[in-house]
């Protein structure tokens, strides 16, 4: 990949991973109708850990992270986030959702609100933050994603890369402990991918726990503590990026890597 050369030059990022488990998946199973999309998934995520999840489409990687904030309901096994077990208790779901930020492939900004309002809405209405304080914090995060000058514009007036950075800032405004990224760069033009990845790298350096579904292997090599490869609803292989890319163990992983790194 073109990014490889670039990545080699950058000194390797220090891991911020600790021993404390923040997300625990125990034997998670999920079906869409007849289709068995997640099969006995076991996974522990540590505080500050960065995990990149990759795999072919339909392998269940998006579904996996969407189960963590209950956008999808799992039908078997347990998901424990920050010590809270996810079940039908709405209070638990709300508690987890305000601790877990999510960035979507299609940005999903609120088109009827300005960038600033997008960022302050949840803090004001969910966390009861006073408006002035919420706006101050939102501006801080908009500066961090390098678009404070767009605060009064509407999402429709921004480029895809800018919208995705706003979406990241919007999630950060809720002060989450964990960030989920569902293919954050897949809907972007090539020239805009790097501006979003830069923001994500910076976020990784700040010690955020991150689960990233992506095909950006350069990003995986650069920041991930662990790379997970999924296919047919199972975790086929997980390892450190060095081992994963240099010594893939299963033949399925080798095939996948040879295909995505072929060009």
């Amino acid at each position: 990949m073109s990014m490889d050369a670039q990545v080699e030059n950058i000194e390797s990022h220090k891991s911020t991973k600790s021993d404390e488990v923040v997300i625990e998946l125990l034997g998670v199973n999920k079906w869409y109708g007849e289709f068995h999309v997640l099969k006995d998934i076991d996974l522990s995520v540590y505080q500050g850990e960065k995990i990149v999840i990759c795999g072919p489409s339909g392998s269940g990687k998006s579904t996996l992270i969407r189960c963590i904030n209950r956008l999808e309901e799992h039908q078997g096994g347990d998901i424990i986030v920050n010590g809270v077990t996810l079940d039908n208790n709405l209070k638990n779901i709300d508690a987890i959702r305000s601790d877990v930020g999510m960035v979507f492939q299609s940005f999903n900004l609120f088109p009827h609100l300005t960038v600033l309002e997008n960022c302050t809405l949840a803090p004001i209405w969910v966390k009861q933050t006073p408006k002035a304080e919420a706006e101050e914090r939102a501006m801080e995060y908009l500066r961090r994603v390098k678009i404070p000058e767009q605060a009064s514009k509407y999402p429709g007036q921004l480029s895809g890369g800018q919208q995705q950075r706003v979406a990241i800032a919007r999630s950060l405004c809720m002060n989450p402990q964990i960030m989920l990224f569902d293919e954050p760069t897949s809907a972007l033009d090539p020239e805009m991918i790097s501006e979003v990845l830069d923001v994500m790298v910076e976020l990784a350096d700040s010690g955020m726990t991150m689960l990233v579904v992506t095909h950006e292997m350069g990003f995986a090599k650069r920041v991930a503590d662990r790379v997970i490869f999924m296919d047919y609803g199972e975790i086929v292989e997980q390892n450190t990026p060095e081992e994963f890319f240099n010594n893939p163990r299963s033949d399925r992983t080798k095939l996948f890597l040879s295909q995505i790194l072929a060009h």
């Binding site: 959702r97 999903n108 900004l109 609120f110 009827h112 209405w125 969910v126 919007r170």
Partner: peptide, 24 residues
């Protein structure tokens, strides 16, 4: 996606409806 984004931010059903869905 609008519903999902609102839910992911922790908005309750009524807040999601009145602040995000209904205005649009």
């Amino acid at each position: 996606g609008q519903y999902e984004a609102a839910q992911a931010l922790g908005l309750s059903y009524w807040k999601m409806m009145t602040l995000i869905v209904m205005p649009q």
